[in-house]
């Protein structure tokens, strides 16, 4: 694949698309929120640093910002091209459809992981004094990257399945993961949120005691990989059968 550098071309194109857009500003603004809160917290000098930092990471970063940014970026990298009609210029080229999907997935994941990961790392280092900071920050970065990959793959598949990809994705995250998984604990097994927390808990020495319940590392990795791979395969299959809409 990409023996003529076509994958690289797609990556560069997608990166320019993603970074040049106004929604990038939105994502950066979102990334500032946890840092701001952490700063307020340190200035106010509230105690229980570890519990509060875990609350910041689990509550704001992983529960809200990560899926939000991943869905916004993920539905725009490919969905934006579908909406604008520029996808045609990629489809009329002799390149395998998987290259298009993989390039979009790579850029979407990278953008989300960098923006939210950086936000998580900085917020952790600001709010956690002493030596516990770096370990928690690394765990946060790894789990955010893992979540970015899974959410991005879902977002890309959704953007090929429905014209309302963003709202459907948000409904999954905030209704299913946010409300239903809170009430019916069994549904946690099909919650990306839990795969992210599972990775964080396994890597972070302070977290396990702070979470009431979490998946173990292996389960989080396997289930997350199944979801990401399934969504990506679905997206590639959909793109291969993509029908250019007659009416915009």
């Amino acid at each position: 694949m990409g023996r003529d550098g076509t994958l690289r071309q797609l990556l560069v194109l997608t990166a320019r698309q993603a970074l040049g857009r106004r929604r990038m500003l939105l994502a950066l603004l979102a990334a500032c929120a946890p840092v701001l809160v952490a700063a307020i917290y340190r200035i106010a000098g509230g105690g229980e640093y570890e519990a509060w930092t875990a609350g910041l990471l689990n509550g704001l970063v992983v529960t809200t910002l990560l899926p939000l940014v991943a869905l916004i970026v993920g539905t725009s990298v490919l969905g934006g091209e579908v909406e604008d009609g520029t996808i045609v210029y990629l489809l009329v080229r002799p390149i395998p459809r998987r290259e298009i999907v993989l390039a979009k997935l790579a850029v979407g994941t990278a953008v989300t992981a960098v923006v939210i990961g950086a936000s998580a790392v900085v917020a952790t280092l600001v709010s956690l004094p002493g030596t516990a900071g770096p370990g928690t920050a690394v765990a946060a970065l790894a789990s955010v990257a893992w979540g970015a990959l899974i959410y991005s793959s879902i977002a890309i598949a959704l953007s090929l399945l429905t014209g309302h990809a963003l709202i459907v994705g948000l409904a999954y995250v905030y209704i299913w993961e946010g409300v239903v998984a809170g009430l019916f604990t069994g549904t946690r097994l099909v919650s990306v949120h839990q795969y992210v927390l599972g990775v964080a808990a396994a890597l972070d020495p302070t977290q396990p005691s702070l979470l009431p319940w979490h998946l173990d590392l292996a389960t989080s990795l396997v289930l997350g990989a199944v979801v990401a791979a399934g969504a990506t395969v679905l997206a590639i299959a959909r793109l291969a059968r993509f029908e250019v809409a007659e009416r915009p």
Partner: peptide
Amino acid sequence: PALYRRIGLSPERDAA
């Protein structure tokens, strides 16, 4: 996709 070595398309829609 190999077919697109033989075809050139200029679509109607003014997307760019």
